[in-house]
Design a protein around this nucleic acid. Sequence first.
DNA 1: CGGTCCCTTGACATTCATCAACGTCGGTGG
DNA 2: CCACCGACGTTGATGAATGTCAAGGGACCG
Lengths: 230, 230
Amino acid sequence: MQADLVSDSRPSAAAMRKLGAYRNGQEIYGETTPAEHWYCVMAGAARKCALLSDGRRRIVDFLLPGDYFGFRTGNLHLFAAEAIVNGTIVARYPRLGLESAADADPRLSRQLREIAFASVWRSQARLLTLGRVTAIEKVGSFLVEMSHRSEPVQQAVSLPMSRYDIADYLAISVETVSRSFSELSRRGAIRLLDKHRMRILNHDLLETGLGRVGNRTEWCARSRTERWRA
Amino acid sequence: MQADLVSDSRPSAAAMRKLGAYRNGQEIYGETTPAEHWYCVMAGAARKCALLSDGRRRIVDFLLPGDYFGFRTGNLHLFAAEAIVNGTIVARYPRLGLESAADADPRLSRQLREIAFASVWRSQARLLTLGRVTAIEKVGSFLVEMSHRSEPVQQAVSLPMSRYDIADYLAISVETVSRSFSELSRRGAIRLLDKHRMRILNHDLLETGLGRVGNRTEWCARSRTERWRA
DNA sequence: CGGTCCCTTGACATTCATCAACGTCGGTGG
DNA sequence: CCACCGACGTTGATGAATGTCAAGGGACCG
């Protein structure tokens, strides 16, 4: 099971930690749940998602072992968190207790800050993934992200979520996700061991454009940047 | 000029604050600048952007008065920040000094945490904007976001950034941004006072779909969610 | 054995990126 | 003053990428 940084180094935090087990699809907290806890995935995987006003769903984050989530300044979550594999273990800390402990313990306080900054950095990196132009680029970028975030088992990257989840995460249709996987396999960039395990064969083929030979965007961005930098 | 929460309430932080003025296009910090400072926009506006490996640019955030930015756990920024209007004023705090002060001052420490959480929340909300399906929805969602973030002057929302910046922010082409503005005007959702000032006439027309009459996505998301919730 | 869910592939329609042209504005220099 | 230029913004035409609809296969379960 994943190490829990806060608890491992801070006995004051470990004392208030509670563990919970969840099965696939089970809600960890809902959109209307008061944000009274902070969470950390210990094993398994979960998704953080929002329901849009028109009824559609959008996944804003996949939560893997070691990821903290659920912090919120107000008293309501805007997102819901749900486990996506059976046997997902999540640690839970009462928010008020943790904050009080942090007031008295600068090291814990620093650690909480670091956790928050890591979260900011992760969502901004995700913005880059979503900002990719073509579907193949998005999927490729997603696979690279997953390979960095998950522990490789026998050089295989595990993809615990369904194709539908990936589609909602990348804001493209399930069919396009499926087609992109097939196309990347065909091009020799990846090899699909089964539906939920994959091996990266050629890293460059994943990262680099691949789609869209036109280069106006490129030129534009560069020229503009040069201008601004000057 | 915008209030600076940290300085206003914490004299220890105010002492180390330095102000800087920037003109349009000027760099506040670069991708390779060591992350030795935290920043807060006091007046004007800026953009946070990343240069992709293929030379393209992506804007991950617009920084408006009151927004803090630049925090990073490692010692390097991944993004660059540049002013986008003349006379942009940015406050700068040395990172180490601020952290030391936070160790000795729980209230400051809490405030920094709140700032970090607000930043997390903002980028996740932005993920929802980017995750919209059609271009019109993206632009509409962007305008709603801007109207929430900027102080309305005579019921007008100010858009300090160029159409190119908006395009890079939403990951769509400049032409499509322009067309979406025109289309939203035509539909009576907004009124363009000039290139950089806009008034929202019909909030619902901006938020709700408008594009894409098909509802398979909707149905799918709802059915899946209901299943999961059950 | 039927049912459901997940995944994949094909065919078609639609959106949007691209290319192109033009208008505006502000600055610069004749 | 006017001509010129570059940056920015808008609109039209066209092709390519992708959403949508449809069909079918495989795994799991009652």
